[in-house]
Design a protein around this nucleic acid. Structure first.
Length: 314
DNA sequence: TTTAATGT
């Protein structure tokens, strides 16, 4: 009689012991996975509570999470008022009514399909932004400025809603039309798409700059216009930081940055004359680009004298 | 070709 109870007690002890051991190893495994994640992308850890708040906006959180992680694979430039769209991620500047930055991950099929070009191009205010921080269509009308895309419409032709999302005014900034938006800036966007076609996978971060100038009294100050009743800021410059993932023969990522003045730019001026040290862009924008990459792992840099690989545009 | 605004 006593033996039966003893065997039962031993059995229960063994089962619970293995259960506890299993939980311990499971927990250890999860902890190591999390540690790897944080080492690869330090921002993921800090940003996830804020991201999950945004998830409620989407029908299927898992899909949004998956796409967001793909686009933001190399880290967040900043963490202010993050907004997820179907094919790009954006940080919104409520004070200026213009984004801080917009991140895209471009692959050949998102720029190739031409049939979506026929689709209606329809600018609209983003009603998810509180009205006192929101820019409206009327702010841009008769302002003398174009509604310039940050994430270009031509980069998001894979699905109809991808393209339509780029027309939200959160992704729009006041740009000089002739000589800039339809000129040098458009040339830069076409150049980015040519990189996508040649190398397959390109990460792009685009945004405005409000660049200080030295005044008559010798001190530095920032001066910029504002348009409309909502006082939408007119950036003095725009930047684009481009990172080509390692599909090419040297097997290392390649990064370069451009800064263009929001002004008419002579047609003959080569794009490469706007190449800029990325640390300088970070200084003016208060952002860190592709922080998840070790800079020493990069092939080349954005200095014009180092590499001619990507510099054969007109 | 692509970008966009304007006037009817």
């Amino acid at each position: 009689m006593g033996h039966k109870w003893l065997i039962l007690a031993l059995g229960v002890t063994a089962i619970s012991a293995s259960f506890v051991a299993g939980m311990y190893f499971q927990h250890d495994h999860a902890r190591r996975r999390l540690q790897n994640l944080i080492q690869k992308d330090p921002y993921a850890y800090y940003v996830s509570p804020q991201i999950y708040k945004v998830f409620a906006f989407f029908g299927s959180p898992d899909e949004a999470d998956h796409r967001m992680r793909q686009i933001m694979k190399y880290g967040f430039p900043g963490l202010d008022d993050l907004r997820l769209y179907s094919d790009f991620v954006l940080s919104y500047d409520r004070r200026n009514r213009v984004a801080h930055w917009v991140c895209e991950h471009l692959q050949a099929d998102s720029i190739r399909s031409k049939r979506l070009r026929q689709g209606r191009r329809h600018f609209q205010a983003d009603m998810s932004v509180p009205s006192n921080f929101r820019s409206e269509l009327t702010d841009y009308q008769r302002s003398g400025f174009d509604r310039g895309h940050l994430a270009a419409a031509g980069n998001h032709h894979l699905q109809q809603n991808h393209c339509q999302d780029t027309f939200f005014l959160t992704n729009i900034a006041p740009q000089i039309g002739k000589g800039f938006n339809s000129g040098a800036w458009n040339k830069l966007e076409i150049y980015v798409r040519s990189l996508v076609n040649r190398f397959g996978s390109v990460y792009v971060c685009t945004g405005p700059l409000y660049k200080p100038k030295q005044k008559a009294n010798g001190k530095f100050g920032v001066e910029y216009d504002m348009i409309g009743l909502n006082m939408v800021a007119v950036p003095t410059h725009f930047f684009k930081v481009i990172m080509v993932e390692s599909n090419h023969h040297l097997g290392k990522p390649y990064m370069e940055g451009y800064v263009l003045p929001n002004a008419p730019i002579p047609n003959g001026l080569a794009l490469r004359s706007f190449l800029c040290d990325i640390r300088e862009i970070e200084h003016y924008a208060g952002l860190r680009f592709f922080d998840g990459l070790r800079r020493s792992d990069l092939f080349g840099s954005n200095y014009p004298h180092e590499s001619q690989v990507f510099r054969d545009f007109g």
